[in-house]
């Protein structure tokens, strides 16, 4: 590759990057507008959530005015966007807290949970999928298929309850509901909001173990669905590769079967797989309301749903924006991975 062509390429990439960012901005704006409209159309009255069902009309009107709901919708939207441009997500209508601060409080709990869940899902799902593909049609494949089917179809809520009953109430291996034993609550200074990291940074290993005991079960159960999905996709990706001639070429070269599978076939599905995992991770970061409910996990999903039910549209908009950004970034990252890992796109 000469310097000229590569610089030409990067110039092209730069314009395509600008192009892409434009699409991202439009997507996010569309998402926000839609959410805003839905929020205003939905029969959920934040004022009633604040003043209660039995407040008299003057109180109601006063709060209605204080929230700015008496302004025309486009004015409200304009102010919202203006504040957003200044990086201000506004204040939650109900608590008066800054939405950004609220999200900063609940999101680390979800990141922590989702990250461990996806690690579990990937570390178990990928080998299972590869195993199923290389044992296609044999009993191993069937076993993996049954496991995947369970992961897909059994409600996560049921898994959660069963997990609690078996591993918490019965075996006492898991730590029950919440992120940490209450005795340890508040012992560690919050730096990242992620208890595992905070406690490790502080060197508080008792706290760390308590957090590990609490997070493992919900994360694994949350990861089951991803695991099933990843295993299934890995299997089909691998099957597609294994039927190709380069695999035979590799075998004819004298490579061992393990090398053929991992060095040749698996290398080729890596990028596809990363995309799948990234999107699954995005789904987990949206929060998992059911798991959060069962395990009393103070995460993003619960925050979003309870805000929605109380009609707190400022909070909902902030959440939607974050979800949008997560998905857009994951897509960009997945694209970038293609660029990096696939020589054909260079």
């Amino acid at each position: 590759m000469s310097i000229f062509t590569s610089s030409g390429l990067s110039a092209r990439r730069l314009t395509s990057l600008g192009h892409r960012l434009g699409i991202v901005a439009i997507t996010l704006l569309g998402l926000l507008t839609l959410t805003f409209l839905i929020g205003r159309v939905m029969p959920l009255d934040p004022v009633l959530s604040i003043v209660g069902a039995d407040a008299d009309q003057s109180t109601y009107d006063q709060v209605y005015h204080q929230l700015g709901l008496d302004r025309p919708m486009y004015v409200q939207y304009f102010y919202y966007l203006r504040d957003l441009m200044h990086g201000d997500l506004g204040r939650a209508l109900l608590s008066g807290n800054s939405v950004a601060a609220d999200i900063a409080r609940v999101f680390p709990a979800t990141i922590e949970l989702a990250t461990i869940a996806i690690l579990f899902g990937t570390c178990v799902g990928v080998p299972l999928g590869v195993f199923a593909a290389t044992h296609r049609g044999r009993w191993g494949d069937q076993v993996v298929r049954v496991i995947s089917l369970c992961g897909y179809s059994v409600p996560v809520f049921w898994f959660g309850m069963m997990g609690l009953i078996i591993f918490y109430a019965w075996l006492n291996w898991a730590g029950g509901a919440g992120r940490i034993d209450l005795a340890y609550d508040g012992l560690v200074e919050s730096r990242t909001g992620m208890l595992l990291i905070d406690s490790a940074l502080a060197g508080e290993w008792d706290v760390f173990w308590s957090a590990v005991k609490h997070i493992t079960l919900p994360a694994c159960i949350l990861g089951l669905h991803s695991m099933a999905y990843i295993a299934r996709m890995t299997r089909s990706f691998m099957l597609a590769q294994l039927s190709q001639e380069y695999i035979i070429t590799a075998r004819v070269k004298g490579l061992s079967e393990r090398e053929v599978i991992w060095r040749h076939a698996f290398l080729n599905i890596l990028v596809q797989l990363l995309t799948i995992v990234a999107l699954a991770y995005g789904g987990l970061l949206e929060g998992a309301v059911l798991i959060e409910t069962v395990f009393a996990w103070p995460g993003f999903g619960s925050y979003l749903v309870s805000s929605l039910l109380l009609g707190d549209m400022n909070a909902v908009m902030g959440c939607v924006l974050l979800i949008g950004i997560i998905f857009v970034s994951l897509n960009l990252i997945a694209d970038a991975l293609y660029q990096v890992f696939d020589p054909r796109t260079r």
Binding site: E245, Y246, A250, V252, K253, G254, L255, L267, N268, D342
Partner: peptide, 29 residues
């Protein structure tokens, strides 16, 4: 046996690993 018998496939698109350079493909055996 690999050293005695080798094979050339029908489809040169499918029989070469798309993420290996010519050098990698030739050096591996």
């Amino acid at each position: 046996r690999c050293r005695k018998v080798q094979m050339v496939f029908q489809d040169p698109y499918g029989s070469l690993h798309s993420r290996h350079t010519v050098e990698t493909a030739l050096a591996e055996p």
